Simulated assay, not measured.
Amino acid sequence: MELIHLTPHSDVDPSQPLRAPGDILLHAYLIPNALNPARLARRTGIPSNQIKAFIADTHPITPKIALRLSLAFDTTAFYWLALQARYDLERAKPVVRAYRPLVD
């Protein structure tokens, strides 16, 4: 049984604007649910300073955090990790483009 179909060329819709996972957490989940970092911390066991760090874009969403967020918001942990992975990859592209491949 295949749960998700990933290929070596799987990607996200490039027309979607890049947003930090913390920005999505704040605007799509915390504000609409009238939650603040302290209330989310009590609900999930994630320290509130860590939640504030996600929102400030100074700390990435880890697998453990993704699992806790998935339980709190009826999402999947994969959703949160995919948001983080896309964000990290897009931010790394300018740095990697500066390097040229070795040609023999």
Rank of each mutant, 00 (worst) to 15 (best):
P60C: 01
A56Q: 14
R68H: 06
F54V: 14
P47G: 11
H9Y: 08
A72I: 10
I24G: 07
S15V: 15
D23I: 05
T44G: 04
W80V: 05
I4M: 08
T75Y: 05
F54I: 13
L69H: 03
W80G: 08
I51H: 07
A82M: 13
I24Q: 02
F73L: 03
I61H: 07
F78N: 14
P63E: 06
I55P: 12
L40D: 08
R86Y: 06
A53T: 02
D13A: 04
P101D: 06
Q16L: 15
W80H: 09
S15I: 14
A56V: 02
Y99N: 03
S15P: 00
L40W: 07
T44Y: 02
L18Q: 03
D23K: 08
Q16C: 10
I61A: 05
I31A: 08
R68C: 07
Y79C: 09
P21H: 06
P37S: 12
K64D: 13
K64T: 15
L102D: 09
P8L: 07
R19N: 04
I24Y: 02
P37D: 03
V103G: 00
R19Q: 11
S48H: 10
D23T: 13
S48Q: 11
N49C: 01
P21L: 05
K64R: 09
R91K: 15
A56I: 00
I31N: 00
R97I: 02
Q50S: 11
L67Y: 10
L69F: 11
A20T: 01
N36Y: 07
M1P: 09
K93Q: 06
T58R: 13
I46Q: 02
L40R: 03
N33T: 15
T75V: 10
L83C: 04
A77H: 12
R19L: 14
M1C: 09
P32I: 14
W80R: 06
L69M: 07
D88L: 09
A20D: 00
I31H: 00
P8T: 08
N36L: 03
A66H: 10
D13Q: 06
I65R: 00
R97S: 14
D74H: 15
R97T: 13
A66R: 09
A28K: 14
Y29I: 08
R19P: 00
R97G: 05
H27S: 11
H27Y: 07
D88V: 13
N36A: 04
L3M: 11
R68G: 06
R86Q: 10
S10I: 04
L18F: 02
T44S: 05
L18T: 15
K52Q: 15
S70M: 02
H59A: 15
A20S: 11
D13C: 05
N49I: 04
R100T: 15
P94L: 06
T62D: 01
L6I: 13
K93C: 01
G22S: 05
L18P: 00
S10K: 06
I24E: 00
L67K: 08
L30Y: 03
P47L: 04
R42E: 13
P32S: 10
H27V: 12
A38Y: 04
D74R: 14
I4P: 00
M1G: 14
A41I: 09
L3A: 14
I65W: 01
A41M: 07
